[in-house]
């Protein structure tokens, strides 16, 4: 069995290497000076200068951030309410609700996007950054709900009873005990919700007004042209760094 174990190990390492390969190549070519773009001819920071001075990137970055913040705040707030209600109380249709809450995660985004677009068209609602936000919240509530609910499952209701026997009223109990104990779950949910929104392309693409560009939409606009745009590679470097920071922060929060 030793030999098969070794083969498995080598294969896994190879697999991981392949997964990282496109990202590594993106970053590698971000330092390429060549006009031919696909053949590496020399090191330069030119692509980074051109990225930094690119107004469209900054504009779409700004749009991504502010919409994602609004989406995160609303969906985490609603997610906390639902998951708290579901874990704490018994009521009819609870199992049904639990399944319905999963659907926005399972359904492919293109379907969500097209149905929402038809809905907006029929109701005569003009596309705006707010229609994008509305669409994002619709799937982010589910993400927030699932993460927070998982955290609440391990939460002892006796914490709250203990606080009350010690003289805390409902509001003090919630602010001093419930909320701080659930905070890691909430932060984790907020991170995921933020990332889902910030990283979303398809739903944004369908429900955005003309001219409203988020970072993924910008990337799409650049990438869907046939050639290569090396300032996109430079952008990729930043995004990879941000992503790794995100992944790391999430790990820290999970262990909190």
């Amino acid at each position: 069995m030793k030999i098969t174990d070794l083969i498995l190990k080598i294969y896994t390492v190879f697999f991981l290497a392949v997964i990282y390969l496109p990202i590594a190549i993106l970053i590698f070519f971000s330092f390429n000076e060549s006009r031919s773009k696909i053949v590496f001819t020399g090191f330069t920071l030119e692509n980074y200068y051109s990225l930094i001075s690119n107004y469209a990137v900054w504009d779409s970055f700004y749009n991504s951030i502010w919409t994602a913040i609004v989406v995160t705040v609303v969906s985490v707030f609603l997610g906390i309410m639902i998951s708290y209600g579901v874990t704490r109380y018994e009521f009819k249709g609870k199992n049904m609700l639990d399944i319905l809450m999963l659907i926005p995660i399972i359904i492919p985004e293109i379907v969500e996007a097209l149905t929402l677009l038809v809905f907006l068209i029929i109701l005569g609602i003009r596309l705006s950054p707010y229609t994008v936000i509305i669409g994002h919240i619709a799937f982010d509530i589910s993400f927030a709900y699932i993460v927070i609910k998982a955290r609440m499952a391990g939460y002892d209701p006796q914490f709250e009873e203990a606080a009350r026997t010690l003289g805390a009223n409902e509001i003090q109990t919630f602010t001093k005990v419930t909320l701080p104990i659930l905070m890691p779950g909430i932060v984790s949910a907020a991170l995921i919700a933020f990332l889902q929104s910030y990283d979303d392309f398809i739903k944004t693409f369908f429900t955005r007004p003309p001219g409203f560009t988020t970072l993924p939409v910008y990337i799409w606009n650049m990438a869907s042209r046939r050639g290569f745009a090396l300032d996109l590679n430079a952008l990729a470097t930043f995004i990879v760094v941000i992503s790794i920071v995100f992944a790391y922060v999430r790990l820290k929060v999970e262990r909190w």
């Binding site: 991981l16 993106l26 993924p216 996109l232 990729a236 995004i239 790794i244 992944a247």
Partner: peptide, 21 residues
């Protein structure tokens, strides 16, 4: 963690990276 991290990078960029390959 090592397995997951690349999937935190925007998928459009990863696909764009495949073009270089």
């Amino acid at each position: 963690l090592v397995l997951f991290t690349p999937f935190w990078v925007n998928f459009l960029l990863r696909i764009y990276g495949m073009r270089f390959i």
